[in-house]
Design a protein around this nucleic acid. Sequence first.
DNA 1: TTGTAGGCGTTATCAC
DNA 2: GTGATAACGCCTACAA
Lengths: 337, 337
Amino acid sequence: MSDRARNPTIIDVARAAGVSKSVVSRVFTGQGSVGTRTRERVLAAAAELGYVVNATARAMVARRTYTVGVFVRDAATPFYGHVLTAMQERASHHGYRVVTATGSGRFELAEERHALETLVQLQVEGLVVCSGLLPASDVATFAARIPTVVAGRPETHADVTSVFCDEDAGGAGLADHVADLGHHRVAVIGLPPGRSLTMAPRTAAMARRLRERGVEVVEVAGGLVDEVPRLVPEIRAHPGVTAVMAPSDLHAVRLLEALAVAGVAAPGELSVTGYDGVGPLRTPLIGLTTWRQPVAEIGAHAVDAVVGLLDTDTVPPHHRSLAGELVVGRTAAPPRR
Amino acid sequence: MSDRARNPTIIDVARAAGVSKSVVSRVFTGQGSVGTRTRERVLAAAAELGYVVNATARAMVARRTYTVGVFVRDAATPFYGHVLTAMQERASHHGYRVVTATGSGRFELAEERHALETLVQLQVEGLVVCSGLLPASDVATFAARIPTVVAGRPETHADVTSVFCDEDAGGAGLADHVADLGHHRVAVIGLPPGRSLTMAPRTAAMARRLRERGVEVVEVAGGLVDEVPRLVPEIRAHPGVTAVMAPSDLHAVRLLEALAVAGVAAPGELSVTGYDGVGPLRTPLIGLTTWRQPVAEIGAHAVDAVVGLLDTDTVPPHHRSLAGELVVGRTAAPPRR
DNA sequence: TTGTAGGCGTTATCAC
DNA sequence: GTGATAACGCCTACAA
């Protein structure tokens, strides 16, 4: 780094104001008492010098940082973006600041681990993990020492508190809708648990409920959103399939695009459902039939939970499941014949 | 906070490994030399105790944090979400971590100032400001001491480096497209500079270019996305208007929704254009005619710029303007008659 | 009300 | 190769 002017410290301010550094400290912490005139002099000197409290030094002695660390898998995704915003809002409400870490976009486990450790190094007082990838065992490593909450995925690890949308109920509810529409043969784009701890259970729930309803299920192995177009021929190869259930809105939209390219009418020939119901894709212009997750509530409750863990002695880990809601759109309709 | 087990320090590790704390420090910094067997003992003891480096303590003596602070206005918005992801990626490439702050969603100036100060308190080495709201004067306050880059808005303050998409060229390019389509009377939803430092210049550029092209412009005063529906009657009140240029994709989509509700065909009766071209709204399902901003590049260059400022002695502030690109969609067509 | 002194966990500079 | 020791900027008794 170039040798820029060193940041002013309380000592500089003290000297400028002609007092001792303890007085300056008291002025900025609000602890202890300072004379009115003295306080003014200190404040003036601080403003003059452009003094800003050094949070790292303060953290050392206070042994507190008033900071919660939030790890989100990918801020560019509407789901995580909204959760993040809600958390930020809620944390500042509680008087905490949030520092965020994300994987660097390549979604590798090692990177996510590293990002989480970074947060711990930063001495966050609590941790919110918001990733469908990182296994509970990794999270539990830190949970023993730092209050930790897993948000947005159905985590039931005994040592870790969690807040999530009920994926079973969501998958089943959406499946019921599709069954109600009268479909008899439905493709479900499923993901292995290793790929996504959120999408795997919800697609499993979809398939399960469909079968319970007497609907024949064609399981299609999905992956990243960009791989969706490749699935079209595979789906079309199964005669009689009149609906496709995708693991997320992003997947569903990509599927609709690919179907349009392939000249397949939706929902005419093929009904399509998504999952998430958050962000711009909720637009009626697309009219996606989906399941809405209560993102804002997930974020808010997650932060409330960590803060609760912070303030209270020994709150046992608990799991909170939030209900989502069916969004009836135009992309799923009764089968043609 | 409940009295949880104190985090282990190098002293604990040193004791467990039977060495002095200096040795432990060397093991974790990689500076200086340690015997192979000693190193192993230290590593084992650290793992056993669950030792994690205390970044705040390290920052104190090293006077470095290897941290860049990023302030984004609203992570829930596709534009900021993508920029954020790009920055994160780029920063980790340079060996820096990113701490993020956002306003708490209410978009008040005081909050944004506070968030920025928080970043400074955290001793970030560089600052990236990504908000269409915060005035340059506020940014300049910190820029004097901390390398600062403004990203994503056309900032030409002499003391602050900036990276942005050329709003003039973008607005003009999009306007040219609309004029080329043959529209003679066009409504532009404009925003005052006080509301958005990005949208104001781009809509101004749209109007300017339209006029240069001999197109009659109807200026409509816009605001937040949610206020867009209220604009429909106003726009319809102007006879002969065959196209509307919105300040962002979010605005445009909301407008299209409102038009659909009002039974106005788009682009049949009214063509609509957006701006940004990022995120899920790029879907061909909507086919929005818009101007694509190079978000990833903006994020990457912004981080490169701060890091450059960090590493080099005295780089003068500079402004980098990136070109966007016209996205021809289906929501803008030649006027009917 | 104000000042002094000690220490938070770490790194860096010395001796050994 | 290893171990003392002095900072780093701040807070907090405690003394004045």
